[in-house]
Design a protein around this nucleic acid. Structure first.
Lengths: 154, 154
DNA sequence: CTAGATGCAAACAGTTTGCGTCACT
DNA sequence: AGTGACGCAAACTGTTTGCATCTAG
């Protein structure tokens, strides 16, 4: 998915109009070291399309996320979440209701890197998120059709 | 760290005044299933101290985070980050400059749960964040004294 | 030609800040 | 008594929405 033609096809496959703005927004994401913020994308795109609106960038990023053309880096809900559990642990995160559950570190086998990271990197810890559906959301999925499944908190 | 006395001692150890508000805010975090948002904490605390200000809750949560009394659940920067890399991979996250780097999944040994999760949980994937310092921030730490180390993007 | 995309401004949510008053040590 | 915490309102940042206009299919 790198040439102009490929991107147009990707859009059509997802039922999206292949507009100039979308093309340039997507190229900007690719060019920006891999994990840009919407603001960063906006600034990059502005150089090619000075008249572009920040709202258009947000709308399209959302559209790309919803259709799977782009991914969100963090699996966590946008707002700050805080915890007091000081024992080493990881988290289970429900993709539907965003519920977070602690999983004690002892529940996991050792997490290991096969090779050392390049010189200069200092590893402090491994953080694991087990992503999936919690029991409540899991049963909802079984009993309702896909169309009726609103993503919502339990 | 559960009784009133323990919390007061914790505050004093960190050079913080052990105010009633702090006590109740901390208790609320403990009571709220482990990972509440500031808003949720505020609502809970309001029931005990109707006159409390949302700003006070935010200020104290920040204070608790800075002094290590509480932890932030997500290791990622607050604003949305987006990526186009569709190959399975995990991330390296620099605690200082928040830079994110892709690490191909093949670089990791298998992530495993020693026991199954309780009935009803559906696991979709494991997401690993390797947390530490990138080379730039790593060398900064060596050459400057702790006092001068402002947390800032590279 | 028409559904959907764009651009603008206004609205919103989450979070921080400035400042006068109050309370812990 | 003095430093730091509180409460309030205002400011700010990141994101979404309503609506009129425009454009890809």
């Amino acid at each position: 998915m790198s040439t102009v033609q490929e991107f147009r096809e990707t859009c059509h496959r997802h039922g999206l109009a292949a507009t100039h703005q979308r093309q340039v927004i997507f190229e900007a994401v690719m060019a920006l070291h891999g994990h840009p913020s919407p603001e960063a994308v906006f600034e990059k795109v502005q150089k090619k399309i000075p008249s572009i609106s920040l709202a258009t960038v947000y709308k399209n990023i959302r559209t790309f996320l919803d259709s799977g053309i782009l991914r969100e880096v963090s699996v966590h809900h946008g707002s700050l979440r805080v915890e007091a559990n000081h024992r080493p642990h990881h988290h289970f995160v429900c993709t539907n209701c965003k519920t977070i559950l602690d999983l004690p570190e002892e529940e996991f086998g050792p997490v290991q890197l096969r090779h050392k990271l390049p010189r200069g990197f200092q590893v402090q810890k491994f953080v694991v998120d087990v992503v999936g559906l919690c029991p409540k959301c899991s049963t909802q999925r079984k009993s309702f059709s896909k169309e009726n499944q609103e993503k919502q908190p339990c």
